[in-house]
Design a protein around this nucleic acid. Structure first.
Lengths: 194, 194
DNA sequence: CGGAGCCTTGAGAGCTGTCAATCCGGGTGG
DNA sequence: CCACCCGGATTGACAGCTCTCAAGGCTCCG
């Protein structure tokens, strides 16, 4: 759903993370922003009681720490939940670039607006009660004009995004396929039938 | 959750809408952005088949048309679903202001980042399966440091945001009150008990 | 006074979440 | 090269929670 190519302007550094690798820690000074290209990163807040609250699970295509963009310290930690590829952007230089270049400033706002639209869209889809209809709406959103779709994430990630138990997603997909509404050339590839 | 005071820089015009009043129509040229202060506005897309798809229901505190910020035409219509108060900001002047003033540019990005954080937070709360726990998490998020909270929307709106049937929300609130976890001085006022 | 919209509560069906077991493919260490 | 392990994908069974449908009370407003 996202096209981060515009981010190339910000001179990103590619990173590779193994599971449990830490991207940044709560309280540290903000140095970078990150775009997740592949994998899954958990944002965790350590409470005083020692509990770890999962604030967010960021998946491929998401930008993290944009909330920290204007803050001096990270207010949560980021830990890879899977082997992941991340683009890292130096925050200060990005901030300077944005401030000094109206052009770049617009680009940045585009990215933000894009995220907002995506989140709203997902929110609306999650208001659909029926698992089958919800899944169908999501596939429709992601598919190209031919109705084809190669999922860029695991089915479990998709289930998470849709707010479904993964078992429920599997069953919904089976039913959709059985009723002929979709075809599955591969596990994570789909074709929507009119 | 939002503080739009920063928007005063953009010289907003206050509007009042009755139910069914149209804020803007799909296809029209984008002229304004809007902040909803009170009420509820539906974003509707008119499909070729003549169906009206509800893209989003925006409630108090939300900014709409920021997706259209960089687009020439509205790609959906906005209709008041309730008597509403809206702040209207001239899009071109806002755009100019933002482009020419690094300071204002940052303000705008703050607003966007804020929206993203809010949406993510809501998303995470909606991953909580139990209605009771979900409601409690939401109340916690909205309450002040004393645990007090005056809801700025109807319970039905809250149910919508949480992805619950309103009946389910009523029941969850009753149970929370019965078990002593919250108190309700008024229908839409709450006190969280430790 | 009447209507509209919101709040509330009841009853029942059905869908979804949970628990469990199995299969499968890729990656790793021996 | 092979056995092993881990995580994802599937499928089954079942309980329980949430949704839906219904009905009634309440408040605000014309």
């Amino acid at each position: 759903m996202n096209d981060w190519s515009a981010c190339l302007k910000f001179n990103p550094k590619p990173l590779r993370l193994k599971k449990t690798d830490t991207l940044f820690k709560q309280g540290e000074q903000v140095q970078n922003m990150h775009l997740i290209q592949q994998g899954r990163v958990k944002l965790i807040r350590h409470s005083l009681a020692g509990e770890n609250i999962v604030l967010h699970v960021a998946t491929a295509g998401e930008m993290i720490a944009e909330a920290s963009f204007f803050s001096e310290n990270y207010h949560c930690s980021a830990v890879a939940d899977q082997p992941s590829k991340v683009l890292s952007i130096d925050r200060d230089s990005a901030l300077n670039t944005i401030i000094n270049s109206p052009q770049t400033s617009q680009t940045a706002m585009h990215l933000f607006a894009q995220q907002i639209r995506d989140l709203r869209g997902l929110h609306e889809i999650r208001n659909i009660r029926s698992a089958e209809q919800r899944v169908l709406a999501y596939l429709n959103k992601l598919a190209n004009e031919k109705g084809e779709l190669q999922l860029e994430m695991s089915l479990q990630d998709m289930a998470y995004k849709l707010g479904l138990a993964h078992e429920t997603l599997y069953r919904a997909l089976s039913k959709l396929e059985a009723s002929g509404k979709i075809q599955r050339p591969a596990t994570t590839a789909f074709i929507l039938v009119v």
